[in-house]
């Protein structure tokens, strides 16, 4: 974990309210793993006060850069979106526990909305595709307008991306769990790796439980420190799994086995 004043190399609009931010951060790029995050302080003053957590969308050890994909939802992200290249931002990372991709026969990446952010860095770093029977990428969103530019961010040669939208304007008319049911054949040992809004993750976890698919989810929570000291990012854990009631998103996660979360 490092704290650096990272220079903005590039900030590009990807779609309405969605931006891709490239930062010079060699020490973080070098240590990064899929699913980990960084804490970025949008201002050097006190309003907003706290740094904001963002998943690592991608990074390059060779170029010494990290990339964040973010949606403008409030003050901090609004300020980030208006930053220009050359400005320096306080960045701490890489933080947290990422995806565990050690053992699987086939993997299914499931993303929703801006939750697709960590899936790029993950997809690029899965062991060689022929180590798996299949790598499936299933994405969901509200509309084609929202989802199309996000899906483009995941455009990796050799990866087939399947889409579902709530309003049917792109891909399957329905939710991402429909795609899972249609696509994930029973004859394979699947590992599901998922990131998105809480209701989606809940539905994904539920479906995986029903089908016996092991599943990891990347959770969000309000954070103050991002490094396991404020204990503000608690999520309930089921009784009797040894976590004394709560897990902490920043240090026990943000990626958890679905079975460790009390849905």
């Amino acid at each position: 974990m490092k704290q650096i004043d990272a220079e903005i190399l590039k900030i590009e609009p990807v779609a309405k309210d969605i931006f891709r931010l490239t930062l010079k951060a060699p020490d973080i790029a070098e240590a990064a793993a899929p699913g980990q995050f960084v804490m970025i302080r949008p201002v050097s003053g006190f309003d907003p006060l706290l740094p904001r957590p963002f998943s690592l969308h991608d990074w390059s050890e060779k170029q010494g850069t990290i990339v964040i994909l973010f949606r403008v939802v409030g003050k901090g992200t609004g300020i980030l979106a208006q930053s220009r290249h050359g400005r320096k931002l306080q960045v701490v990372g890489p933080l947290g526990k990422g995806f565990d991709i050690t053992s699987a026969e086939s993997v299914c990446l499931v993303g929703g909305g801006i939750g697709i952010a960590p899936l790029l860095g993950l997809a690029k770093r899965l062991p060689e595709a022929d180590a798996y029977n299949e790598i499936a990428v299933l994405l969901g969103g509200a509309s084609g307008e929202e989802l199309a530019p996000l899906a483009e961010c995941l455009d990796i040669p050799g990866l087939a991306v399947r889409l579902a939208t709530d309003d049917g304007t792109l891909g399957h008319h329905g939710v991402v769990t429909d795609l899972m049911e249609n696509h994930m054949t029973r004859d394979r040992d699947w590992l599901v790796l998922s990131c998105g809004p809480m209701p989606m993750l809940k539905a994904v976890a539920h479906l995986c439980r029903k089908n016996g698919w092991p599943c990891q989810v990347s959770l969000e929570s309000v954070m103050a420190c991002g490094m396991g000291v404020c204990l503000g990012c608690a999520v309930k854990s089921p009784a009797g799994n040894g976590h004394e009631g709560y897990l902490h998103v920043c240090k026990d996660g943000p990626v958890f086995w679905e079975s460790d979360v009390a849905w």
């Binding site: 006060l49 404020c230 990012c233 608690a234 309930k236 004394e244």
Partner: peptide
């Protein structure tokens, strides 16, 4: 084990 979430909220400064 502490309080249920949400446990923190940012306020002005």
């Amino acid at each position: 084990s502490g309080n249920p979430p949400p446990r923190i909220v940012e306020t002005p400064c």
